[in-house]
């Protein structure tokens, strides 16, 4: 009972807060949506064979510097891992344990 009240109060508070930060929340939500899509696509692209940044960029039709950034983020939080080199480029693959 008490927990329920607390949860409701909390939900109410969050709602209020979201209203307060309407602009930034909305913008960030848009960003997050896009980011999720890209991350999904990247993971899909490198699912079977490890690829380099230019290869991923070509498949995804995205500028390579943006791909590198997303890969960096995915790598930092252990979604993607390095797997050797292909010439002067690093090959990226899915990390063994999925986040």
């Amino acid at each position: 009972m008490n927990k329920k009240v607390e949860a409701r109060a909390r939900a109410e508070k969050m709602k209020q807060l979201r209203k307060e930060h309407k602009v930034t929340v909305k913008r960030t939500q848009g960003l997050l949506k896009e980011q999720k899509r890209i991350h999904r696509d990247i993971c899909l692209t490198i699912r079977d064979t490890p690829k380099t940044i230019p290869e991923i960029a070509e498949v995804m039709e995205m500028p390579s510097h943006e791909v590198l950034w997303h890969i960096t983020a995915l790598k930092k939080y252990d979604v993607v891992a390095e797997e050797g080199m292909c010439g002067e480029y690093v090959l990226y693959t899915r990390a063994e344990e999925e986040a």
Binding site: I53, A57, H65, L68, T72, Y89
Partner: peptide
């Protein structure tokens, strides 16, 4: 560092 190695930010190439 961000990449853990020296690669260029444009496309991840190891610079020569």
């Amino acid at each position: 560092g961000p990449y853990g190695r020296i690669i260029r930010p444009g496309d991840g190439k190891e610079p020569d």
